[in-house]
């Protein structure tokens, strides 16, 4: 099935405390994104507001609980719930994470890391195939933020993601904050990561704020916290990314300590400046 893609403009995560203001003021935004799992109740105000907002804006449906990197088979009931949401809201995009979050003990509510080996690649490819078949559409897969490395990993993350996209036909969601977090945590060069990233597969960009602590050796450890403004170094990396990719749909994520909507719109203006800059450069060349 063909869907209009997300526009190459800034978008925001939709939060219940902002529903009324968004409906009243219709802010100038390219799209809204929601976590799919928050709209898996049967009815009530969340669906009523989301339906109203979808009448005015394209929707990006972003899953956080499918456990695509899990050793266990995908949760068929959860896939059915996702399919029902996709059919109901016809989102412009569906995305999920290169991570796992469910195990025998239950759902762990965190995006846990996957080692990069030929075996895990086979598993993730099979799971992405299954998701795309179940939903009847292409999905985007997001690069993770990680805090530890697996000794068993033999493939670089960029190559791992590129292989998944090549083999399944899925797109990629490039989270620039995650790139910064993982690069600092693992002493890698974030610019080199972006420069090697298979940008032709990228359908959306995420930006967010990180927190900072230290590891056992007292060295910088960044945490993907989604509770503050996008940090200047991430914005700089985003600018570098957009010069390479051209304008792309760009989400500002802010999920914890959610501020007033106007603060989010300040972030949107900063994103807009970067996207407009690309346009001007392209017009000039």
């Amino acid at each position: 099935m063909f869907h209009d893609p997300l526009p190459a403009r800034p978008g925001l995560g939709l939060k219940p405390q902002h529903y009324a203001q968004i409906i009243a003021e219709k802010p100038d935004l390219g799209f809204f994104e929601v976590h799919a799992e928050n709209y898996m109740g049967e009815g009530g105000p969340p669906h009523r507001y989301l339906s109203a907002i979808c009448a005015d804006y394209p929707l990006s449906l972003h899953g956080v609980g499918l456990s695509i990197g899990g050793e266990a088979p995908l949760d068929r009931d959860h896939l059915k719930r996702l399919r029902a949401l996709v059919e109901r809201y016809q989102p412009a995009s569906f995305s999920e994470h290169l991570a796992w979050s469910s195990h025998d003990e239950g759902y762990l509510n965190d995006l846990l890391p996957v080692p990069y080996t030929p075996e895990t690649l086979e598993r993730v490819v099979a799971h992405v195939d299954e998701v795309q078949q179940a939903l009847g559409r292409r999905m985007l897969l997001e690069n993770p933020s990680t805090y530890v490395l697996f000794e068993e990993s033999t493939i670089e993350e960029v190559d791992f993601l590129a292989a998944i996209a090549d083999r399944t036909g899925c797109g990629l969601l490039l989270d620039v904050n995650n790139v910064m977090v993982s690069a600092v945590n693992h002493r890698l060069d974030p610019v080199a990561y972006i420069d090697r990233f298979p940008v032709h597969h990228v359908g959306e960009i995420h930006l967010a704020g990180y927190d900072e602590t230290t590891d056992d050796a007292g060295e910088r450890l960044l945490i993907d916290a989604h509770g503050s403004r996008v940090r200047p170094d991430v914005f700089a990396l985003y600018r570098h990314t957009i010069i390479r990719t051209g304008a792309l749909p760009t989400l500002v994520e802010w999920d914890n300590n959610v501020p007033a909507f106007d603060v989010l719109m300040d972030e949107v203006r900063l994103v807009d400046e970067v996207l407009d800059g690309t346009l001007n450069r392209r017009l000039a060349s």
Partner: peptide, 9 residues
């Protein structure tokens, strides 16, 4: 007590 699945509602 962990959640049984990814829907936390």
């Amino acid at each position: 007590t962990k959640p049984k699945g990814p829907v936390l509602l």
